[in-house]
Nucleic acid binder design. Structure first.
Lengths: 246, 246
DNA sequence: TCTTTACAGATTGTTAACAATCTTGTACGC
DNA sequence: GCGTACAAGATTGTTAACAATCTGTAAAGA
């Protein structure tokens, strides 16, 4: 029955922060949408895995009509592919597509950084700096997975501070498609230190209320991420084509 | 019964080019989605107008279950707002939001221009230049509405040429939200001439296969559009607050 | 007169059964 | 042995009826 979350398996921390869903139905369907969204985004269901309506009816605990709505929305989010009369499956995003998406994210997020520099309050800035402190500690203790989590939170904070809701929505939508690659870039040797320096620069530019500088810093940061992504993709496919890993 | 299109009123030119829908169901729901999408985007249903499921069942000629799916997708597209147990209405996008959206569009579309400069074939370039010729003629003959249409087509062509499908999807999604403002910027006196010059520069940069220059040209162009949008918005709301039009 | 409550109509949310389509496995003919 | 035709099962698409919720109106009470 696959690894879909059940009604009763609600011990999962619900990791809501990246949901593109706007204020919406308290109705059965909404909860199911969030759950399945989370299941896909967090990799509990695999790319290309089939999503059979009757199974979802059980695992999500919602009627089939609601399941169909949920699948339609997820298709719209780019997380699911549907073919007429042939059902839905989790969409597989390729490495090259991940690269493209990251570049778009860079463009939007640098706009958000610009907005954040204009609108950040002292509290916002303090919060961001606190995150930087956390990140430094996690980096030094070598816990790169948690580092990456706080990293995500910092980006989310910047986006939220910008006050640009459309940007926030789009960034969340794009990020959701990238989970399969989420940890790959930070885990590259030596990348963490650069990453930390880049984030520091972003926060300092925002703290200085310098929009141009903040945008540039964000652009630089994410273009490095994109490059790392592309390079590791290349390495991977080469290895897959016969060249043994060193 | 409002101005929704009927089954039998199919004489409408269907203006498909901007649809964010991916390859999808030939099923009843898909057709209905496209039609309602078009009705909203082309202003045949007004912002804040209620969308009653039973009415749509009739006007779109699809069963109610399909209507509900359609509304969910449109909510996801940001074209419709739904409240639990209270139904759906066409979303009203504010002037300030339109400004925000245009800036995001600028960011993504300049990325697309960059891609277009890299990937454009001679045929692509010829097609773009042909559009420029058309635009010049329409401008000189003063038909600014048709000018604006070709304008849209040129942008779409650039996006398509970039080969970045995610960018194309997002741009279409954003543009769909802006129809209420579509013609406002070109109609501003003197704006058309600048607009034409800017488009020429974009196309020439692409023809020269110079990605940086193309991106910069697109950025410049759309930031002018955004500014015009913001300025006319200000003028309007001032007028609305009591100052009579000259 | 103003506020509150109760009801009726309208509308959305849910459910279950039915129809259409696709997939898979098997038997048959070549 | 190989490919095609057919039938059974699985799955999606459609339909219609029922239940829950909301809106607006009008009567009852202060």
């Amino acid at each position: 029955m696959s690894m879909l979350s059940r009604r009763d398996a609600s011990a999962d921390r619900d990791d809501d922060r990246a949901l593109p869903a706007r204020a919406s139905k308290a109705t059965a369907a909404e909860g199911g949408y969030r759950r399945l969204h989370g299941d896909i985004v967090q990799g509990r269901v695999m790319p290309n895995e089939r999503l059979v309506e009757l199974d979802l009816t059980e695992s999500l605990g919602v009627p089939r009509a609601a399941v169909r709505i949920i699948l339609a929305r997820l298709e719209n989010d780019g997380l699911v592919v549907r073919e007429p009369n042939r059902g839905a499956r989790v969409r597989m995003v390729s490495e090259s597509e991940a690269f493209e998406i990251t570049r778009i994210r860079a463009a939007i997020e640098s706009l958000a950084a610009e907005g954040a520099a204009l609108h950040a309050t002292d509290d916002d800035i303090a919060e961001m700096r606190a995150m930087l402190v956390q990140m430094r500690e996690l980096m030094e203790s070598g816990d790169l997975l948690k580092y990456s989590d706080v990293n995500s939170l910092l980006h989310a904070k910047v986006t939220a501070t910008s006050g640009n809701q459309t940007a926030a929505r789009l960034i969340a939508e794009l990020k959701a498609q990238l989970v399969r690659f989420q940890y790959r870039t930070v885990l590259v040797v030596g990348r963490a230190k650069n990453s930390f320096a880049e984030h520091t620069e972003i926060v300092e530019a925002i703290a200085a209320h310098d929009p141009e500088r903040a945008a540039a810093a964000m652009r630089t940061h994410l273009s490095h991420v994109a490059e790392t992504l592309r390079d590791t993709a290349g390495a991977r496919s080469q290895r897959a084509h016969g060249e043994p890993a060193p």
